[in-house]
Design a protein around this nucleic acid. Sequence first.
DNA 1: CGAGAGATTGACCCTCTTCAATTTTTGTGG
DNA 2: CCACAAAAATTGAAGAGGGTCAATCTCTCG
Lengths: 246, 246
Amino acid sequence: MNTIRITKDARPDPLFDDCPDCGFIAWGLCAQLTVRESAEFGKRIEHRRPRKNLEHLHRAGAVLTSLYIIRDGFMKSMVDGNNGRDQITGFLMPGDLIGMDAIATGRHQCSTIALKDSSVCGMAFADFEQLTRDIPALQQHFQQTLGCEIARDHGMMLLLGAMRAEERVAAFLLNLSRRFAARGLPEHHFCLPMTRQDIGNYLGLTLETVSRAFSHLADQQHIAIHGRDVEIRNAEALNKVVRSNH
Amino acid sequence: MNTIRITKDARPDPLFDDCPDCGFIAWGLCAQLTVRESAEFGKRIEHRRPRKNLEHLHRAGAVLTSLYIIRDGFMKSMVDGNNGRDQITGFLMPGDLIGMDAIATGRHQCSTIALKDSSVCGMAFADFEQLTRDIPALQQHFQQTLGCEIARDHGMMLLLGAMRAEERVAAFLLNLSRRFAARGLPEHHFCLPMTRQDIGNYLGLTLETVSRAFSHLADQQHIAIHGRDVEIRNAEALNKVVRSNH
DNA sequence: CGAGAGATTGACCCTCTTCAATTTTTGTGG
DNA sequence: CCACAAAAATTGAAGAGGGTCAATCTCTCG
């Protein structure tokens, strides 16, 4: 789930002078590097690569050249079901590491696309690999990040395999909310950066079903929605929707 | 997908004298270790731990103590949806690494249960971690294995999110077939070690739907099924079922 | 050989999809 | 800044895919 807390207060590190809110530096800090290691790591980061809305960060099948962490913005990753069918595998927000789908083969399994104008920081994968070999703490943190992705995917399999439409939508909103909270952003009132179509694709539903689920949750006063603005009015009730069968 | 080819011919390594078909040794060989490293790795393996049918290898929530690789038998891993609902996240066969769900937190997210009498080889996670720090090739191979799991999970999300019942069942059979083939086992005629209920849970379907899908695929002569014996009569046709929408 | 779990098949029903019409929002150029 | 077109979202009605319930059959395995 790659939840990395980035708050302005908790960032006395001079490394951030270069690029405030840099997710890569924050990620490195999580790895508990020494000052020396941290400097070595920081040197290799390529900061502030901007991406326009709808621009590809990478395409499925492409060789893995760099790992990225979103600095600002929002993206989606999708696998291609080689018959026009595709499946969004995740929505990515600031602090999330991008590129783990390519570790297995060296080629990306997913395409990753910006859902609005965004910026990312990156590191050449060759550099990254060398650093993980040289710095055990970094290696361990990277393995942990991969492990988090595996755990997240298993949760997603539970959602897709065992939940009803409204439960999926409620779980989706709560998940977004928690991730916003972990970044110090408002957790009860936020803007959905993706279309209903995207949400539906991600949750294994049609866009109409997503829309109806939103409307129904709003009828029950659990949320309020106006277009892409969401307010979570009763998180506990949403939790109940997720947990109680039918 | 952890496909590790283990054939009797391709195993001149004296390491195997101790435990023929040991998946851990095979996994270590894939990592391209030096003779010295390989010996160090081999020393830490705990061979041939038997598991009775339905016995837990580990339970969700338990602390990660060892990683395991199935030597012989078949298992299933399942996450618990804390309201009686659960979701099988994978079926595991000889050569598959078990325990990656716990890398993130140090505690297992899944329970893993033997589907028939099985045996596994294991390694204490503390030993394993130390070895990955000392042996870069092992570290890289482990990261690759984690990456494979992520790629597999994304494929599963595509299946659960975008495929119809019969497509899922066809994809399931083809996947099993390929994995058997990768192990040098018959790929067109094998036995399903799990119940229809398990298959349905894994694929996000009911057991009745799985049964009907099998019957329908058999009607079309794509497969033959008698209970748990499956014969794949026309793999190409099955592929078409998976790929062509509806 | 018998009991109980597992599998198959049928009938009905419900959730979600599909199709369609309308409204709202977004984005672009005059 | 407004106007217009295009995209996105909402809502309704009808239909289908798959779930649910139930009866029967078939395998294990003790």
